[in-house]
Simulated assay, not measured.
Amino acid sequence: MSSDFQVGRVALGVRLRELRADAGLNGKGMAERLGWQRSKVSRLENGKQTATADDLDAWALAAGVPGEAADLKSRLRGLESQQRSWRRQLASGHRAVQEKYVAAYRDTSAVRGYEATVVPGLFQTPRYARHLLVHNAELMRSPRDTDEAVRARMNRQQVLHEPGRAFRVLVWEGVLYARFCPREVMAGQLDRLVGVIGASTAGGGVSLGVVPFSAQLTLSPKHGFWIFDEERVVVETINTEFQLEAADDVALYGRVWDRLDESAVHGARAHRLVARARAALHVA
């Protein structure tokens, strides 16, 4: 459990204790009013147990301040959204971050992802990945461990071939044209995507779709995100990685993915979009 999470849980417990005391109740009285064991009240107030939304509704009602439930649940959502600074994560270079993702994918059975600006790491070629990692190291002023980071990113791709896993990935068509590397490197990357699309049409655990520029959308493409086992969402910004675990947040991102998928094309139609972008490079 992260220290930030525990600090937040203790702070929530302090607030619960304040509401209970303001109601003129001791721990035993609060437990009786709630119909709980006294030990549960103690664990919640001392940050030893994470409250549920229903717990917080009941607590506010028992304390005579039902209007406080919204604030309490907001604090709970704050616990379930973990923020990790890239500056801290990259303090020793990119390799450790890539290895963290390898472990995350190996602990996951079903992944839904969407990227709006870059080819997903699961499908990157080594040369494409190298250019991205070099650019990011320069931007973040982090240590250069590019060779090790590229190898770790390629190791992550091994999960694509493991049985019992499902990867359903979407990309915005702009990804096919955003060049962070020389033309010939981008051409090789697009060739790799053709292979991924071919594999997805042949069946198996990997599916890649493209949201075309011409698609009729019901929402704007916005930022990329990844949903792991319908339990956790990872969102990357320029300076921070957010891990969202609140059920409402996971459900929201699931609905966004569903809407994007409704506008996406797969199979031969996706292949034509990649081929068009490949032709625009004018590389043999």
Rank of each mutant, 00 (worst) to 15 (best):
Y101H: 12
R106Y: 05
D261K: 04
L190T: 05
G164C: 04
E80N: 07
R255H: 10
V185F: 07
R9M: 13
V250W: 10
V159N: 14
H161K: 09
R17V: 10
R127N: 06
L34M: 15
V10M: 13
A23R: 06
F228R: 07
R168I: 00
D55N: 15
D258N: 09
A21C: 11
D22F: 00
R259L: 14
V41F: 15
L61C: 05
A51C: 12
L133I: 03
V119S: 12
I238E: 15
G254I: 05
D4L: 06
G164E: 00
L25M: 15
E173K: 07
G254H: 11
L25R: 13
P212W: 07
T117H: 12
G13W: 01
V175I: 08
A277F: 05
L208K: 04
H271I: 01
S200N: 07
G203D: 05
Q124K: 02
A199T: 06
R192G: 02
E45P: 14
Q6V: 05
R20T: 11
T218G: 11
S92W: 04
A31L: 06
G224F: 06
M1H: 02
R77K: 01
H94D: 04
W226L: 12
Q189I: 10
A53S: 11
G174Q: 08
H135M: 13
